[in-house]
Design a protein around this nucleic acid. Sequence first.
RNA 1: GCGAGAGUGGCGGAAUUGGUAGACGCGCUGGACUUAGAAUCCAGUGGGGAAACCCGUGCGAGUUCGAGUCUCGCCUUUCGCACCA
Length: 864
Amino acid sequence: MHERYEAAAVEAEAQRYWDERRCFEAKEDPARDKYYCLSMFPYPSGRCHMGHVRNYTIGDVLARFMRMQGKNVLQPMGWDAFGLPAENAAIANGVPPAKWTRDNIDYMRMQLKSLGFALDWRRELATCRPEYYRWNQWLFLRMLEKGIAYRKTGSVNWDPVDQTVLANEQVIDGRGWRTGAPIEKREIPMYYLKITAYAQELLQALQGMHGWPERVRTMQANWIGKSEGVNLGFTYDVDGISGVLRAFTTRADTIMGVTFCAVAAEHPLAAHAARADDRLAGFIAECKRGPAIEAALATQEKKGMPTGYSVRHPLSGEAIPVWVGNYVLMSYGEGAVMGVPAHDERDFGFAKKYALPIKPVIEVQGKPFSTDAWQPWYSEYGRCVNSGAYDGLDYRAAVQAIAGDLRRLRLGERQTTWRLRDWGISRQRYWGCPIPIIQCDACGAVPVPEADLPVLLPEDLVPDGSGNPLAKHAQFFACRCPRCGAAARRETDTMDTFVDSSWYFLRFACNDNARSMVDARVNYWLPVDQYIGGIEHAILHLLYSRFWTRVMQELGYVPFAEPFTHLFTQGMVLNEVFYRKPPAGRVEYFNPADVQVTVDSQGKRRAAFLRADGGEVLSGGVVTMSKSKNNGVDPQALVDEFGADTARLFTMFAAPPEQTLEWSDEGVQGAYRFIKRLWKAVFDHTAQGHPGRFDPEGLNTAQRELRRQAHHTLAKATDDIGRRRTFNTAIAAVMELVNALARFPADTPADRAVVHEGLEIAVICLSPIIPHATHALWLALGHRTAIVDERWPIADAAALEQSTLEIVVQVNGKLRGRISVPAGADEHRIRRAALADANVQKYLGDGEIRKVIIVPGKLVNVVV
RNA sequence: GCGAGAGUGGCGGAAUUGGUAGACGCGCUGGACUUAGAAUCCAGUGGGGAAACCCGUGCGAGUUCGAGUCUCGCCUUUCGCACCA
C-alpha cells in the first residue's frame, strides 16, 4: 500500500479488476433473488453533466449495496438516442444526426466507465438502432389492430417562414425561435394512442403503489384528473342549424346561475357564427394563433366575443348567450363551458369585463354576496337559492335532483370526465422512429406488413431547419401500396421519443433477441425493483411507461401491469450564477469556475470577481445547472483532478438525494480530504502489522465504547442506505467513526484489534459509495478477496449494548440538567435521580410539582 | 393560472415516531510545522451577555407538559403543465 492516496492509479486498478472478472455481468438464476436497479437512461447530448453523475451514483450505490446483500443484481445502461437536439446540432454544424449521436454516445460511455459504475455493458442499447426501434413499429401495429392506436387530426405549431412544425420549446413568445415569425396553429392528421381508455386503471393502481413517493402518485392522480359531475345540453336552433351544445360541470347545483356559455375558438358553433361576422372571424383567428401551452393559456388575459347566438337553458328554458372564449379548451370535454359568474372565479372576471349578468344561486351561511368583487367563499358549497324547485337543497341533494330532471328531459346525466388526453405520437421530424404506415390514394392508410419491418430510417440526411428531410427524400417515401400494389407514399412522420423510453427497461433483459420484442428473461428480471430518475419525469415519462406496460400485458407479452416497483426521484443539481449586465446589450453569464469569491473575516460573502479581468461580477443566486446560465460543472474535469470517488462522495454527501444539490468547489475539496484521511488512517494502522483477534469480554471501557460506536455506525449506515436512502447521513456517521478511530491511542494489541475492526466497518460502509478506494483499502487490511464480493455485515447486538444512559431533565420544557442512570433503571428511580439533580432543584424552587413526564431512555420533564 | 414540493448558523445540511436544535462537512479565527506558500495537524466557531442566563428553525396565530416536526392563514422559492428530454 502506498502512503499517498493516488486516485488515478487506484481507480484504474479497481476497474481493471472488475472488468477482468466480469463482476457486473448479470445472469438469470431462478434460484437467486433478483434485483433490477435502473437509472433513467441519458439523452446523448454530448457530455455527461452533474445530473447524470448524481443519478447514476445513486443507482450504483443501491446496486452495489444490494449485491453485497446477496441479491442477483442487474444494472444496465442505454441511450435515449432519438430527439430534437441532434437535429439542431445538424442544422448548426452540418453533421448528420446519426453521426453526432454515435460520437456523443462513444464519449459519454467512456465518461460513465471512468466513474466506475457497476453496469452490465453487454446489455447496452440505443433507441436509434433498428434492432431496437423495429419493436416500436411492431407494437404500434399491434395497437393499431386492437384500436389502441388510431388516427385523428391534431394541432401543431407552424412556422410559416421555415415551413416547418416547431416543438413548444422552439416557440418563444409566440414566435419561431429561428425565424422570429409569428407562429400559427395547424390542424394535421396524426396518430394517437388511447391512453384515456386506461385512465381508470392507471388511477386506481396508484393507490397500491407504495414503493412510489406519495407526491409522485398525487401528481399523477391530478394529471389523470378524474372528475365526476353532470353533462348538460343546451339546445339551439340558429341560422338554419339546430343541435345541442354540450357542457360538463362539477357544480350542477349552480346550474340555475348560468348567464352565458363559452365555446372554444375551434368549436363548430363558433365557426358557423363567424361566417357572417368578420370581427368574430378575426377574434377566432387571434385565439387560434394564441399559445398552445397550457401554462401560457392559463395566465393570458381572458378574452371573449359574443357569437350573437343563444341557446336554451335545459331547465329554465331561458335564452343563454353564447360567447367564444380564448380560455376554453377544445381538448377538454366537448369544447364548451357553462358560465356561472356568481360561483366561479374565472366566470366572475369574464362577466365583469363584458357586463354579463351575475346571478347568485348558492348561499353560504353567514357570508354575504356582492357583485362588486370576488370573494373566496362564493365558490364554496352551500344551499340553493333563486333556484325554483331546488331552493333549500344542499350540494348533494341539488345535484341529485338536477341530474334526475336533466335525465328525464334527455338533456343530460351524470358523467365522469378526465383531464388526461390521448397521447399524440406523430412528430413531423427526421431523427426519430418512422411510423410504419403507407398512404395509398386508393386504400388509405395501410400498415406496413410485419415481414417488411423495420422501416429503416436513412442515416445520412442533414436537416436544414425547413421541414422534415424525410418528406423531401424520395428514396424513403416512394413505395408501393402493400395492399393494391399502386404507387404510394410512405408516412414521413416519426414517433414521439417518449415511445422509445416507454419500454426500454424491458429490452435490457433481452437486447440480443432479434426474433421477438421480449422473451422469458423479461419475466425473470422485470418489473424493475428500483427505478431512479429526476423528479421532472414524475408525470409524462412515468405515466406513458405505465400505460405501455399495461398494453403489453393486455396483449399477452408481459405478465405484469406495473413496470417499476420502487421509484426514487432525485433532486436537481444547482450552482450559483454569475453575470454582468452591460448598459446596452444582453446579459453575459460567466462560469463559476472562472469567478473568484471574496469573504470577510467572519466568512461572510463580500464580492465576486472574474479571474480573467479582475472586474466585479454579480451573483444571480443558485439555480439549476444549464447551458443558458453558463453555470454547469464538467464532471470530467472533476474526475481528472480528484478521481471518480471524490465526485461520487461529494454528490452523495452534500445533500439528501431527493433534494436539490448545490454545487460547491470547497465541498469537493472536503470530500477529497476525507478520502485522504481514511487512506492515511488505514496506512498508519497497517504499517504496524496485522493485529490479532480480540476478546470482546476482555475489553476496557474505552475499547468497548469505540467498538460500540463502530457497530452503531454499521447499523445506521445499513438503515440509511437500505431503508431511508439518506446517503448523506450514512457518510456523516462513517466520518465520525473515522475521526474517532484516527484519534484512538493504539497502544496495546487489543486497542489495535478494535481499531482494525472499526476500519473494516468504515471501509465496508463506504464501499458502495467510493468503490475504488475501498477496493484498495480492503486488500490493505489483509483480505485476499475483493470487497465487491464481500457480504454486507450485520451489527453485533452485544457490542451495541450500553450499561449507562444519559437522560435529559427539563423543568417546564426547558433543559435544566443531565443525569446518568443504569440502562435498566425503572421510572421510579429515574424520577428520583432527576429531582435530586442540583440544577433541577434550583429551578423547582418551592413550586408544587404538578406532573412528571418520563420518556424512557431519553428525557424527563418536570411540570411545576 | 392549475397541480406538487421546499424554507433551520456565514454556507450545504442533521435532528428517523411530538422529546437535548445545529451531528457531519465547508468557510472563518487563532496556533503548530515551513525560508515561504501549498498540504497536513491542533483548538475555537448560532446570536446577545462580564456572568447567571436570555433569544433563536420564513412570517402570524393555534394545539400540547413539550413544536423545526402537528393544524390554520400568509410570504418566498423550486419542479411539472401534454412537441425539450
